[in-house]
């Protein structure tokens, strides 16, 4: 149980028997009225979005989630396949559940998988990940405007907007929450 006022981004709530991830939360308190927490929630099993406004004085149920380490193997269209690092059990997570998280994952890498009851419902990935640029078009000649960008593709197939000086083979750091380029990494 948690107070409506203590809801935080990243928490899992249990609503009508289903686990929901808190994607956004905002404290709202009208000058004349009770205080509420306005939340954007994502159903952790099917990815559907729910907007809820909860009184800060009300209590909500937290979903009892736990983590396990698992290696990401491959995607077969609609499902991401994983292998548990301890038991070597293989399991899959629907693409709709992972949504944007999936496109940042790298095959062969181990991630923390969030479990609810016996179902995997999410994957925790680092906020910033370094990728190698696999395909970068040449900058258009004469395009010297400050802040000019172009689109490159990285090893996992992800497209990223980067400054025009980035070349194929460069390593770049990407923010996995916004999908934005952070910096070039020199190793």
């Amino acid at each position: 149980m948690a107070k409506g006022g203590a809801i935080e981004k990243g928490m899992y709530l249990l609503i009508k028997g289903e686990p929901y991830l808190v994607v956004e939360r905002e404290f709202v308190n009208p000058g004349k009225g009770a205080a509420f927490t306005r939340c954007k929630l994502k159903n952790a099993k099917n990815g559907s979005v729910l907007r809820e406004t909860i009184k800060t004085s009300d209590t909500v149920d937290e979903a009892n989630v736990f983590d396990r380490d698992a290696q990401y193997l491959y995607i077969d269209g609609d499902n991401y396949h994983f292998m548990d690092s301890e038991t070597y059990d293989q399991f899959e997570i629907p693409a709709s559940v992972l949504a944007d998280t999936g496109k940042y994952m790298r095959e062969g890498e181990t991630y923390r998988v969030v479990m609810w009851e016996s179902d995997p419902i999410g994957v925790t990935i680092p906020l910033k990940i370094v990728y190698e640029v696999s395909d970068a078009p040449d900058a258009v000649k004469g395009d010297t405007v400050t802040g000019a960008t172009k689109t490159v593709t990285v090893e996992t197939g992800l497209s990223v907007q980067v400054p025009i000086f980035i070349k194929t083979g460069d390593k770049i750091r990407v923010n996995t929450e916004t999908g934005e380029y952070v910096e070039r990494v020199n190793e």
Partner: peptide
Amino acid sequence: WEDLFQRALLT
């Protein structure tokens, strides 16, 4: 009633 009004307004 006021709780419900506020929820509809804020949501």
